[in-house]
């Protein structure tokens, strides 16, 4: 049943203490599908995608990632995390390691890849995100856009089948947004399964298969991009779109 789905979320609920942050989430993501998640701040977008690699724990319902159900079983969590890459709003590169070491760390220590091979793979991905010449530098010496591209390369070095992006461009200066979106677009065109929390509507129109709108912990609306933008159904979606598109 889970064969053709990369991610399947079924009647999932999550609370922070008493606060019901995610309510009855149902979502199926096919392999190779690109999903864009948008919605007002505090609506639970980050929490939702962080549940997918168990950075947050859900309390009710099922999440099945790549055929593995997320439970308290640490082995399964590790298995899922190996297959799911994640990019954060603030990059979260390791400041004490060089760019190359950032990229080879997980392959070497999690997958047991020999160092030389890991470095070769890492250089390949750094070329793909167009910064191989920065390999020997430290994250603190790079611009925001470059750091985010390194963060993407670092995730890709684990050869994940699914990539999660949590507002990857919202901490960036405008002129750097495009360089990151270009990398993400390339990735989408190569058939990566992706869930992106982003308010970059141009990106959503261009590459998304579906756009999901969240508000107050619920999925309010879900549609293909053309319909979603041109013909929103829900009042709250209309309000939100009018605010961010003018």
């Amino acid at each position: 049943m889970s064969e053709d789905f990369a991610i399947k979320i079924n009647q999932m609920h999550k609370w922070y203490g008493d606060f019901h942050v995610l309510r009855d989430i149902n979502l199926e993501v096919k392999k190779g599908e690109i999903i864009v998640v948008c919605g007002p701040s505090g609506s639970g977008k980050s929490t939702l995608i962080r549940c997918i690699n168990r950075l947050e724990e859900h309390q009710q319902g099922d999440i099945i990632v790549d055929g593995i159900e997320l439970t308290n079983d640490v082995k399964k969590i590790d298995e899922v995390r190996r297959e799911v890459g994640m990019c954060f709003q603030h990059f979260n590169l390791f400041p004490h390691l060089t760019i190359l070491e950032n990229c080879t760390l997980a392959p070497i220590w999690v997958r047991g890849t020999p160092k030389a091979e890991a470095e070769e793979i890492a250089m390949g991905f750094l070329e793909k995100v167009k910064i191989p010449e920065q390999a020997a530098k430290y994250p603190g010496q790079l611009s925001g856009g470059q750091q985010q591209r390194v963060a993407i390369a670092r995730s890709l070095c684990m050869k994940p089948r699914i990539m999660l992006f949590d507002e990857p461009t919202s901490a960036l200066d405008p002129e750097m947004i495009k360089e990151v979106l270009d990398v993400m677009t390339d990735l989408a065109n190569e058939g990566m399964t992706m869930i992106c929390v982003t308010h970059e509507m141009g990106f959503a129109k261009q590459v998304a298969d579906r756009v999901i709108f969240m508000d107050a912990g619920q999925i309010i609306e879900e549609n293909v991009p053309t319909e979603f933008f041109d013909n929103p159904q829900n009042e709250r979606t209309k309000l939100f779109l009018s605010q961010i598109l003018h």
Partner: peptide, 9 residues
């Protein structure tokens, strides 16, 4: 979180 997300124990 970055370490966790990469699957490090």
């Amino acid at each position: 979180e970055a370490a966790d997300a990469l699957g490090l124990s």
